[in-house]
Write a protein that binds this DNA or RNA. Structure first.
Lengths: 346, 346
DNA sequence: CTGAAAGCGCTAACAG
DNA sequence: CTGTTAGCGCTTTCAG
């Protein structure tokens, strides 16, 4: 930078001001231009480590997610990345594998790297780390999952109406023996969707006892398989399943296939998330579409808002705003009328 | 850190030495323990910005990939992340969308963030940016794709034998009119696989003219659709297709379906990569399995090697080592005997 | 509008 | 084995 300054014939402080968009107003336009030209010529790139050291801001955001390999998260990550880079920020992605120790470690590493804030997609209903983090006042936005205590702003899909759409669709198709193979109940989405399911069934006048809910241990294909086995063992009369998410739905699909049950002729199935390639499954999966990219983008926006405001004033704790995105059902080929079911049997 | 030092009753330089694993040997064991205890007590986390500024090393690696949303890359990213974090490094992922300007920008941003090196999965056969980077001697490892000039170490799958397995499988099934819907020809994997295809057909004694190659414009479903349309328009007698990758295969699948051709009864199809959920397609895709996680891990290892050696000595330019991983064919349900084909027609 | 000077938190060379 | 000192490259008062 001294070199740039020398070439432009100014002091390095002036060069610094000229090169920083937020201070370039405080410098003569012609001088600024000269400095920029000099920087260009020398192929100068600003040393962010030095800037961070001085300003105590790294323009870096930590993103905690369970597993990038889960098809949900790549679009989320891209959404985050897009709004962050537009503002000169960079995302540091960290996989936690739903492991508390690993998460803690990643969190500390990210803190060491002076991240300005976090986007957390790994929230459990009870979450020690997040409670501590709340006390230490690090800016955090929750994505998708939230804690039981409303500690932080949250960006998520509107699971309630999502499930409502799914159930209504099955009811419209004449189903009454509908079961919910739910997600894990220690995660907010798991219980929200289960509650929404019970509620939707209740509205339809179906007794609480008939609104079957079998929780899977995790949002995975394997857990979905196990839970579906259990469901079908105990309640073979089930004609339709609402799955906690698409991976669980995939597990259900496997079990149906293994048992010689056809989907949708024998059992209808609705997923949740509309993950990439859900339309390529066998059969193409009817599922609730969640705009993951937008979720990521909005979470990033909310975090930036927080960072901006904490910059201007040490202002009071902002209300934990919640942004719920509208969801819609994508009807494909995994659902059919119950009527079709009787005739279909060979 | 001064606080830690004070609490431990030593100078901050000593504290620094005690806290850094690579220098903690140069300090009294008891003192070191005292310092670590103090650090623990104060919840001290080292400021990496300051360290970077001083040491000129950020323990950060830039990863350039086309698009995290492409199912190939999440496992690659995880592989990279796993070996990097084990050594205290962090990966900075950047999506380029195969856009040269965007890639340049991302590259510069990463340089500004003082990355110690790059893993690049976006190499084109002619690649201006990479040639410049080579001159500037930034440590780089190429992943999957390489430039025509062997500028950097490369980690990739052994595409040649992968394609050979695919072709041999189809030949064994009695196919002779086999076509290759190839990947884009400005990318190394695109031409390598196309060449390997021609070679494998040649070995089988099938004339060069019959070894049909139709290149897709990109490794996408849409491009795969277009290329397959073209192929089937001009060569309806084709009985089997080797696709440049699984996304192209998916495009082919769509076109077959649209034309009322059954896979595998009418046309057999082999993909490449064995991407996540390829086994859930309709039909489950026979494809060449590529160990993406291992590719990422190995690339990270190679880069770390380079970083270690450039640390010890300013040593001469290392030979551009190439690591090719063995690939194998996963036979599923998208391939069948030609014989079955005749009988299958209604 | 620009220059001078201090200092962010850490490490490394040098003494002792 | 430990303390002293200087300085990484930048931003930001404070003067002028």
């Amino acid at each position: 930078m001294s070199d740039v300054a020398r070439l432009a014939g100014v002091h390095k402080a002036t060069a610094s001001r000229a090169l920083n968009p937020s201070t370039s107003g405080r410098v003569n336009a012609a001088t600024a231009r000269r400095v920029r030209a000099a920087a260009e010529e020398l192929g100068f790139t600003l040393n962010t480590a030095a800037r961070s050291l001085r300003t105590n801001r790294s323009f870096t955001v930590g993103v905690l997610l369970p597993d990038l390999t889960n098809p949900l998260f790549p679009p989320v990550a891209r959404g985050i990345e897009e709004v962050l880079t537009a503002r000169g920020y960079t995302a540091l992605l960290a996989n936690t594998d739903n492991d508390e120790a690993k998460e803690r470690h990643q969190f500390d590493v990210l803190l060491g790297r002076q991240v300005d804030g976090f986007i957390v997609a790994t929230a459990q209903r009870e979450h020690a780390l997040l409670e501590e983090a709340h006390k230490s006042r690090v800016p955090i936005v929750l994505l998708n999952r939230c804690t039981d205590q409303p500690l932080f702003p949250l960006v998520a899909g509107d699971d309630n109406t999502g499930i409502l759409f799914a159930v209504r669709h099955l009811l419209d198709r004449g189903h009454r023996s509908i079961a919910h193979v739910a997600g894990p109940q220690d995660v907010s989405t798991g219980i929200t969707r289960a509650r929404a399911f019970r509620h939707a069934m209740e509205i339809a006048g179906i007794s609480h006892e008939q609104a079957l809910v079998v929780p899977a241990q995790a949002y995975t294909v394997a857990a979905g398989e196990r839970a579906t086995e259990e469901l079908l063992d105990h309640h073979p009369a089930t004609t339709a399943i609402v799955a906690g998410n698409d991976l669980i739905a995939l597990g259900a699909l496997h079990v149906l296939r293994a048992r010689g049950l056809r989907c949708p002729q024998d059992i209808s199935l609705v997923g949740f998330n509309d993950m990439q390639f859900a339309d390529e499954f066998q059969p193409p999966l009817t599922t609730v579409h969640v705009p993951h990219l937008e979720l990521g983008a909005e979470a990033a926006r909310l975090l930036l808002e927080q960072l901006d405001s904490s910059e201007e004033s040490a202002g009071g704790a902002p209300v934990a705003k919640t942004v719920l995105f509208p969801l819609h059902l994508v009807v494909r080929e995994s659902t059919a009328d119950v009527a079709d079911r009787e005739g279909g049997l060979g």
